[in-house]
Nucleic acid binder design. Sequence first.
RNA 1: UGGGAUGUAGUGUAACGGUAACACUGCAGAUUCUGGUUCUGCCUUUGGGGGUUCGAGCCCCUCCAUCCCAGCCA
Length: 570
Amino acid sequence: MQEKEDLEVKEEKISLNFLERIIEDDLANGRVPDNTIVTRFPPEPNGYLHIGHIKSICINFGLADKYGGRCHLRLDDTNPEKEEQEYINAIKEDLKWLGFDWGTHEYYASDYYQNLYEIAVRLIEEGKAFVDSLSAEEMKEYRGTLTEPGKNSPYRERSIEENLRLFEEMRQGKHAEGTHILRAKIDMSSPNINMRDPALYRIKFAHHLRTGDKWCIYPMYDFTHPISDALEGITHSICTLEFEDHRPAYDWATSIDGIDHTPRQYEFARLNISYLIMSKRRLLQLVQMGIVTGWDDPRMPTISGIRRRGYSPESMKDFINRVGVAKVESVVDYSLMEFCVREDLNKRAERLMVILDPIKIIIDNYPEDKVEYFEAVDNPEDPNSATHQIPFGRELYIEREDFMEVPPKKYHRLYPGNEIRLKYAYYITADSVVKDDEGNITEVHCTYDPLSRGGTTPDKRKVKGTSHWVSATEGVSIEARLYDKLFLTENPGKATGNYLDDLNPDSLVVVPDAKAEPEILNAKVGDYLQFIRNGYFCLDNKENQDGKLIFNRTVTLRDSWAKMKKKMGI
RNA sequence: UGGGAUGUAGUGUAACGGUAACACUGCAGAUUCUGGUUCUGCCUUUGGGGGUUCGAGCCCCUCCAUCCCAGCCA
């Protein structure tokens, strides 16, 4: 009991975001039916979910979880021309990957087509809706502008009987698309354009994923969404800022006679991240134009993209948590997201030695055919980490950048006469180099100190550099795909107006023949790996059917040496 | 020039009338068998102007700036 009180006191100290405050206030004042918070995540299945959606998902599922309520998944499928089953499948898979469970509460706006239709008929009967026969262009003229009120449609005063007959004919498919439309009678002079007799139903002779050809009239968002919320018993309908203007329409619809549940709409600022584009329309363009290989290309900010890239769901949820929830339009630094990914992966990734850009070193005083094994910890961040064996031999690969004939200041790695440690193995000193006809270094000859076995020496002498390495004879070849940002600028397209102008030509660099320690053959899809000093990687989840393994770089390690080089002008 | 919103370090978010803070970024240093990690320190903040109050980031007035809205999209 005491413990529980302490806990509550503690929780009170944690500041609430504005949505939590609203909910706690509603709960405290008995405004929530059954004291059960019901939220919903309502994606339209017209594209893949992206990082921006994660925020909405975390808010809706998170709030339901925190206050012991539930969150519905509702696919908002009211526009059959844009929606596809592939997207529905992807949305559900992405949600599961993030670890959210909607239980049996999987709904579709199309589940309510019959209800919606009946409500529309009732509105007509009550004189609150009418069939308009203005063309789209005429309707636009009648709508007025932002600063001028609109005018009533000449069809606004049609008789109830005529409206009923026309709407029924629309439903029966007797009228062509665009010839008639059902509109609410609200107020053409409203300063809020959404209240100027909004469209309720339009004619569309389109095959619907779920209702097939049953309907040729489809309800509009402003009509469908609030009523769907009401029918499902949603208490808090949380959406993004651009729907603020629609709240009066939302309240209008949920106040229609016969609707006995009143959800409330609240708006928060959508997530923007520098260097990323977060618009389904533009992401679709990238796919269609072939700029990326698909919605799940590891460079895409889609959930399936970042999953394939190797981001963990935990790191993304942590990121969303750190970003917070507010009503201010903002752009979060890309670096915060990378920080969250690295922080999580640092704790969980198995370390492996992989050489991306190999240069061969030969240890002249090491026996020719000898192979010995060294023990490596899988993850030094984990005190209980398992270990694995790494084969060592006379000929090894190290990174090309780990050897320099003429080193700059503060360079701590291999150069003639300098001693470094080969991680877990021996100290070596570079003696000489062999070059090809063009002057490229093909071999570095070294000497090792047998007393340094295991990486330390009896005399405790220090070396400033430690390099990772792979046996030239025992190592295996893999393909590494080095991904970087898709765009070069923080706000793609800001300078020229066309985001495609800011594409990063080096967003993917393929290393077809990287050298890896044999342990890598145990890697499975979904494993988080760190290639020591090269970054976090994961096995590609798509193109690994046979042959050479393909690894995607999730994110690089922080690189203070690169910063220093830049500063020194190297 | 209609309506709706929003302004706190470079970026995000707290502070709920009582000493403006946390994280990321950046910078400097220490530690390290990853130039990673970890640790330490530093930098910079209430859009402007009035008012109320003993006291204002918070309340009031005013100005300014930014974002959203004129789909038979959501």
